[in-house]
Amino acid sequence: MGKRKISGGEFVFQVCMVILFSLLFLSCAYPFYYVFIASISNPEAANRAMITFYPLQPTLDNYRQVLRLNGMSKAFVVSLSRTVIGTAVTMFFTSILAYTLTKRELPLRRLFYSIAIVSMYINAGLIPWYLTMRMIGLKDNFFVYILPYAVSAYCMILIKTYMESVSAGIEESAMIDGAGYFLIFWKIIIPICKPVLAAVIVFTAVGQWNQWTDNLLLVNNMDLRTMQMILMEYLNQATNIANQARTGGAGAISGSAISPFTIRMTITMVVTVPILVVYPFMQKYFISGIMIGSIKG
């Protein structure tokens, strides 16, 4: 970049922008940084002094403790399983639907398409949904984390749009060789659609990891508890203690010993980090996903 002459007004403008956006940046970055430094602070030190910009007596003890917490490793396995299996299932059923809906030969194509699209706009409501899930045996069942998300109409549109944009020529030549639709879908279409599938995979996976209302409403079984829910339980505990303190309860002091603030921050960290890890991959797909989505969404 060659040095261009910058006028005084322009200089002032750029400085103002840098200040403005640095503040915006901080409002988003600092909260996460705060959780991080709290998670590596010594619990006693954090009780005595306030954490602001740097960790107090840095230690990894919180992480060691959190990993040993009851049910934590199990919840991690549940969250990871629902993310991996759920994403795979969603990809399969959604992309296969996207593929067949591009085929004019599909009987009842318009009806199927309408069924899929209208599903985005209808919502029976919480209780009817709850009762239905219970009726079909998904209460306290791992599959309640998987099956309801198996077909995403929104992702189907993204994939279908992409499939329609790639050339149909390759497919026809495969057809002449006698390959059936499924084989073509599996061996030819899926590899071609890698870019859009990658985008959808990342978004689905993040959605799965973040999902917790199904756990709250339909799963009481401790063995099927997700990471998000464990964090929620610790937060409920902390909220109750805070409310007791407000109403002048004497239990507040003994309460703070139950779950130190640093432990809560460490769990928050453990639940957040997987998102931050896939985030750079996800960002690549923002624009393309948004562009298709904002037109058709």
Partner: peptide, 25 residues
């Protein structure tokens, strides 16, 4: 055409069960 239909029906059934069936509630 039959293959295509077989490929479509499971996904459509999932949509019907999880998006439309609750409406009967």
């Amino acid at each position: 055409r039959r293959t295509l239909l077989f490929m479509t029906v499971p996904s459509i059934l999932l949509v019907l069960v999880f998006s439309y069936l609750p409406i009967f509630g």
